[in-house]
């Protein structure tokens, strides 16, 4: 693992579980995940749709739609304080102030009837106790900081008058207005075109350097992860199945799911006749298997994989992986070394 700074982590998630209690049963969207975020670090949480990555990010700020959602266990320690058990009043002081969030859809994530300047300024008045004028000026300043041309004019406009890229810039300005310690970016560029995506990613990186915040980058795009993150947590069916530095994940993926995911990507710099695929499909969150959740799709599956769920265990090189292959109990024909390869 790459440690950006050797301080105590700014955010520490321990055994977090977010479950949804519906008529169909209990959906274990997030089922016991652990990770840490250092100051200045960018942590990627990556996985396919339904793996629980967005629910994880919403759980940190306790923004899960409730009912039916509920944090069913675990801790989210921010500077040592547990956000899960905090009062709603205290939690509000954290949201948008110390931990901010930007969302996937810039088109729908801004209030359509409120000028964008006011949407930024209201957070400043609330958290920084600024006056109307000061907050407005600061909002205009933020718009300038995120690279919006003629910010004075734009601040008075409503979201529909802005392009998609500009709206995402406004979202970023809003999230960063109070200089948060942690920024959670939930698929921040998925709805944008690639040239705009490049602009937005560069902007987030730039502001991170300036403000020194920790960033959690939630994405399904492994390219975005490779280019922006220091460390990566790969999620599958509500669990983290591999947690390592970006270099390690891409050069030497350990979990068969991570390997399959990387192999199934079409490569822009090489030609392949056929793509590797992962057979089968993700288990239903209402009916998780008792063993390894990836077992039925895994090319290396063994009886033990169906009997018991493996733990997320740290290897010698610091990589954490949730797979029987890397334990002493492994009896499969595939040698460990081979699996590692």
């Amino acid at each position: 693992m790459k440690m950006t700074e050797n301080n105590k982590p700014i955010l520490e998630v321990k055994g977090l579980k977010t479950h949804f209690f519906t008529k169909r049963g209990v959906s274990k969207a997030v089922d016991g995940i652990d990770f840490t975020l250092q100051k200045g670090e960018t942590l990627g949480i990556v996985g396919e749709s339904g793996c629980g990555k967005s629910m994880t990010s919403l759980s940190i700020l306790r923004l899960i739609p409730s009912p039916p959602g509920k944090i069913a266990g675990g801790q989210v320690l921010y500077k040592g304080k547990d956000l899960v058990t905090m009062s709603e009043d205290e939690m509000r002081k954290i949201r948008g102030n110390e931990i901010s969030m930007i969302f996937q859809e810039p088109m729908t994530s801004l209030n359509p009837v409120i000028p964008v300047g006011e949407q930024i300024a209201e957070a400043l008045r609330l958290h920084q106790k600024m006056g109307r004028k000061a907050a407005w000026d600061r909002a205009v300043e933020m718009l300038k900081l995120v690279g919006i041309p003629s910010p004075e004019k734009r601040a008075k406009q409503e979201p529909f008058q802005l392009s998609g890229g500009m709206r995402q810039r406004v979202m970023i300005a809003m999230a960063l207005a109070c200089k948060p310690e942690v920024l959670i970016a939930d698929e921040p560029t998925t709805a944008l075109d690639v040239t705009i995506q490049a602009q937005i990613l560069a902007l987030i990186k730039d502001l991170q350097t300036k403000l020194g915040m920790g960033v959690i980058m939630i994405t399904h795009d492994l390219g975005v992860v490779a280019e922006t993150c220091d460390n990566v947590a790969v999620m599958y069916a509500g669990n983290i199945i591999e947690y390592a530095s970006t270099e390690q994940i891409f050069s030497n993926p350990k979990h068969p799911y991570t390997q399959g995911l990387l192999d199934s990507l079409p490569k822009i710099y090489e030609d392949q006749e056929e793509l590797r695929t992962i057979e089968g499909s993700v288990p239903s969150p209402y009916n998780m298997p008792s063993g390894c959740r990836f077992a039925s799709r895994c090319p290396f599956q063994q009886p033990i994989c169906y009997q018991q769920q493996p733990e997320l265990m740290e290897q010698n090189d610091g990589v954490k992986v949730r797979c029987w292959m890397y334990t002493d109990q492994w009896t499969g024909q595939v040698e460990k070394q081979e699996a590692v390869k």
Binding site: V194, T195, A198, G223, A226, T228, L262, Y269
Partner: peptide, 18 residues
């Protein structure tokens, strides 16, 4: 082409940001 994030941190590219 240069805007596409490449899922390989080993590849270093010159990036043109429009």
């Amino acid at each position: 082409l240069s805007s596409i994030p490449v899922p390989n941190p080993a590849i270093q590219r010159e990036r043109v940001i429009l």
